[in-house]
């Protein structure tokens, strides 16, 4: 088990190193930040000072090693536009994104898995067919469009919920959270629904496919023969047996939802990291872009690692197999 973990951690480090080179080279090699930083009428003196300040006069290799050594000291550079340390800039906005993403993915899982199990348990019922039709829509319809329709329906026409912003926040551990106030929830519910729909569709499909397979297995036959009620079979045995792919997808989707949050945050003016990255792309704010991508890649690697550990915990066969 520990050698397996060590191998996985090493693999993660290699991936991170490769990612950092690719991202750095990609973002720094093309495009000229000088056009953004220095007004065309600036004097030669101002130009030279700005170039020296951001280290733009050094070669790419030097810039990269400077970047890496700063990275290990927790310094990801200064934003060209906001004149603030990048880490602080992202850190300030991360809680907003995290609470949005977590609400969406948890909601999608806790609603999607029971729906999927039902659809797999009674695949020919009208309810099951309706559930599957909704999930196809969830797959096909672009996120931004769903967001617009949600705003049009619940904010503009019905006027029940606000169309954007984060609402009142409450402080916990020195960070502002929307999930602790009623007003915050009223702001959170539409963007979270928007973000959750795609994940919901995936969870439904996974749970349904798993349930259909497990229902035919001997385990279920024996459980029935032992006189267990159908509810107990579904909630105790089927759920356990289909949980492995669900945990995998939960982890992977958590990370990809962070990426999709870019779209949702833009539509609902949610002040998270996604909006920051869109703005920095438009302004060619390279330190912010690089830091965001490295952090996202790091998150991917970490989550994948956690999923691997989760497997071992859930599936005793894997645990024993690897100990040998």
């Amino acid at each position: 088990m520990s050698s397996f973990l060590l191998q996985r951690i090493l693999q993660g480090i290699v991936i991170m190193a490769v990612m950092s080179v690719i991202v750095f080279a990609g973002v720094y090699a093309i495009g000229n930040p000088l056009e953004v930083l220095i007004p065309p009428e600036a004097t030669q003196d101002v130009r030279a000072r700005t170039i020296a300040r951001f280290g733009l006069d050094k070669s790419l290799v030097e810039q990269y090693f400077l970047f890496i050594s700063n990275l290990f000291q927790g310094d990801l550079g200064q934003s060209y536009i906001y004149n603030e340390p990048v880490l602080q800039l992202i850190g300030n906005r991360l809680p907003a994104t995290l609470e949005l993403v977590l609400t969406a993915v948890l909601g999608a899982t806790f609603i999607g898995v029971p729906l999927g199990i039902y659809a797999g348990y009674k695949p020919d019922s009208v309810t099951a067919r309706t559930i599957m039709a909704v999930s196809i829509l969830g797959f096909s319809v672009p996120t931004f469009w769903v967001g617009l329709i949600l705003i049009l329906t619940f904010a503009v026409s019905l006027g029940w919920l606000p169309s954007g912003g984060r609402g009142d926040t409450a402080e916990l551990f020195g960070i502002d959270w929307s999930i602790f106030t009623l007003d915050g929830w009223s702001h959170l519910i539409l963007p979270a629904t928007n973000l959750a729909l795609f994940k919901l569709a995936i969870m439904i499909r996974l749970a349904r496919a798993g349930t259909r397979e497990v229902m035919l297995s001997d385990a279920v036959k024996f459980a029935r023969a032992a006189g267990l009620s159908e509810t107990t079979i579904l909630s105790r045995h089927v759920l356990k047996l289909i949980s492995i792919p669900i945990v995998t997808v939960f982890g992977l989707e958590l990370a990809s939802t962070l990426a999709f949050a870019v779209v949702t945050e833009t539509i609902f003016s949610w002040p998270g990291v996604g909006k920051l990255i869109i703005d920095s792309i438009k302004n060619l704010d390279r330190p912010v872009m690089v830091a965001y991508l490295i952090l996202t890649a790091g998150l991917f690697v970490t989550i994948n690692l956690c999923v691997d550990i989760g497997y071992a915990v859930l599936d005793p066969r894997l645990r024993r197999g690897r100990a040998e």
Partner: peptide, 20 residues
């Protein structure tokens, strides 16, 4: 495989940002 684990929308965003 590495690329498949990366959300396409993010990749497209970065490339549009880098390429113009």
């Amino acid at each position: 495989d590495l690329q498949l684990s990366f959300p396409p929308i993010l990749l497209a965003l970065v490339l549009v940002a880098v390429l113009g």
